Every structure is written in structure tokens, then in C-alpha cells.
Amino acid sequence: MNELDTVLMRLAQAPLPAGLTAIDEGVLARVAAGAVSRARRGVGFATISAALAMGIAGASMPSREASATSLAPLGPISPLSPAALLGGE
């Protein structure tokens, strides 16, 4: 525990890095760029809204009724399968 206290004390007494003094400009530039990202959010919202509207419209007008032709899409059901042994097809 004493080693941790010593390391933290050395860190507190160390001089600040030179790049730390110029960090304010970078932060302010990112805040200013936030206005551009807000404009992009509007375009994203419009895209999502259009996709949702197309999905609802497509789901409300089916072209034909769906029907399952077979329960075994990869081939016939084996006579020794659990479904066949339990009284299935």
C-alpha cells in the first residue's frame, strides 16, 4: 500500500505535459463540429422515417397469401427422427 501512495505522490508532483495546455482548442473545435453532426442527425432521421414508412406500406399489402409447402426444407423427414417416432409426419 505504501508503494501506491508513493507512486501517486510522484505523479501529483510531476510537471504537466506540454500538450495538456493546448487541449482547450481541440475541445472547443469538437464542440463546434457538433453543430455539423446535428445536421447529419436530421438526414438520418429522415432516412429512418422513410424506411419505416416503406416497411409499413409493404407489410400492409401482401402480394399473395403465404403457405408452407413442407416442414422439411432440406429433404424428406427420416422415419427414425424424433418427430416421426412421436407420431409426427
Rank of each mutant, 00 (worst) to 15 (best):
M1R: 12
N2P: 07
D5E: 11
D5F: 06
T6Y: 12
T6K: 13
V7G: 02
M9P: 03
M9S: 12
M9T: 10
R10T: 06
L11H: 11
Q13D: 15
L16I: 03
L16V: 04
P17L: 00
A18Y: 01
A18Q: 02
A18F: 00
G19Q: 05
L20H: 00
L20F: 00
T21E: 15
A22I: 08
A22Q: 15
D24S: 15
E25F: 00
E25V: 02
E25P: 01
E25W: 00
V27S: 01
L28A: 01
A29W: 08
R30G: 08
V31A: 12
V31N: 09
A32E: 05
A32S: 02
G34N: 13
G34P: 05
A35P: 05
R38S: 13
R38Q: 13
A39R: 11
A39T: 10
R40D: 05
R41G: 10
G42F: 01
G42E: 02
V43M: 08
V43I: 02
F45D: 01
A46N: 00
I48S: 09
I48W: 03
S49D: 03
S49W: 04
S49E: 09
A50T: 15
A53R: 01
A53G: 00
M54T: 12
G55C: 00
G55H: 02
I56R: 08
G58T: 14
G58C: 12
S60I: 07
S60R: 08
M61C: 09
P62G: 05
P62K: 09
S63C: 08
S63M: 09
R64M: 07
R64V: 11
E65G: 04
E65R: 00
A66K: 07
T69V: 12
S70T: 11
S70V: 01
S70K: 02
L71I: 06
A72N: 13
A72H: 12
P73K: 11
G75Q: 11
P76Y: 07
P76M: 10
I77F: 13
P79H: 10
P79V: 06
L80Q: 04
L80T: 07
L80W: 06
S81N: 10
P82R: 01
A84E: 10
L85W: 04
L85S: 02
L85A: 03
L86Y: 09
G87F: 06
G87L: 12
G88V: 01
G88D: 01
G88H: 00
